[in-house]
């Protein structure tokens, strides 16, 4: 699904990612953990194609194709989804309108006609129920006046609607109370399929009590310094990031 080779990234001349290697297969859930400021969000943005980052070396292969030359919207249309750490407000644009626009643009990219309204609304209904969301969410403006928890749930809802091949969830657990955390985790688990994959980026081990990862990576100072099974997360929780620092 995703294969990152020796990825080096700088921002304004300062190297943030110093040679990332990562392989994610279909059907897998990966967790990337690490202390603040080690490049977790940078990695997510670079994969998603945000401008302002300079890739100095390496490649990102997604579904067999190097995507570094693709724009952010092309990558999204290819099936890449980023759950934002800080979802952005778009005043006056309803979630329904936003998602319909997104789905139709993605369909256009694939040479398909716009989704019929009835089909679209039925899908909204289905996904809302799946994620146990309230009715009124869809008519509200995108993230405007949302609580932290609502914003994160809205990210998961968009993910459910867009059905990506690969979802990267950047600190989706931060700022969530335990109920919201459970809803988000349940959503991720329910959307898990043999033909898609998820990368969960998190600071804490807490989320991993609800989403069981196949592989855990520790990102430290721009490199993945350790990879292992889910027990690695527990070890990290127990020993703290100091342990990594001393090991690396």
């Amino acid at each position: 699904m995703l294969s990152i080779r020796n990825l080096k990234v700088s921002i304004k001349g300062k190297e943030i990612l110093k040679g990332i290697n990562l392989d994610v297969n279909a059907g897998e859930v990966h967790a990337i953990m690490g202390p603040n400021g080690t490049g977790k969000s940078t990695l997510a943005y670079v994969i998603a194609g945000r401008e302002g980052y300079e890739v100095t070396e390496g490649e990102i292969i997604f579904k067999g194709r190097n995507i570094l030359d693709l724009s952010a919207e092309e990558r999204a249309c290819e099936g890449l989804f980023l759950g934002f750490q800080y979802p952005v407000e778009i005043p006056g644009v309803s979630i329904t309108n936003f998602l319909r626009t997104a789905i139709n643009e993605q369909r256009k990219y694939k040479g398909l006609d716009p989704v019929p309204a009835v089909e679209f609304l039925a899908k909204m209904e289905e996904k809302k129920q799946l994620l146990e969301l309230q009715e009124k969410l869809a008519s509200r403006s995108v993230n405007e006046g949302f609580s932290g928890g609502e914003k994160k749930k809205n990210e998961i809802f968009q993910m459910a609607m867009l059905e990506p091949s690969l979802a990267i969830l950047d600190e989706t657990d931060s700022g969530l109370d335990i109920d919201a955390l459970r809803i988000v985790a349940t959503g991720v688990n329910k959307l898990r399929r043999p033909d898609n994959a998820t990368i969960v980026i998190t600071h804490y081990q807490r989320l991993l009590e609800y989403i069981i990862p196949d592989v855990v990576h520790v990102l430290f100072d721009g490199r993945i310094v350790k990879s292992g099974g889910k027990e690695l997360a527990l070890l990290l929780e127990e020993k703290g990031y100091e342990w990594i620092r001393s090991e690396s």
Partner: peptide
Amino acid sequence: FYCKQRGISSESAIGLIVNGY
């Protein structure tokens, strides 16, 4: 970027944001 990450082109994104505004 938020719009583009959802697959929405710059042009459509501006249309969307301006109409919302």
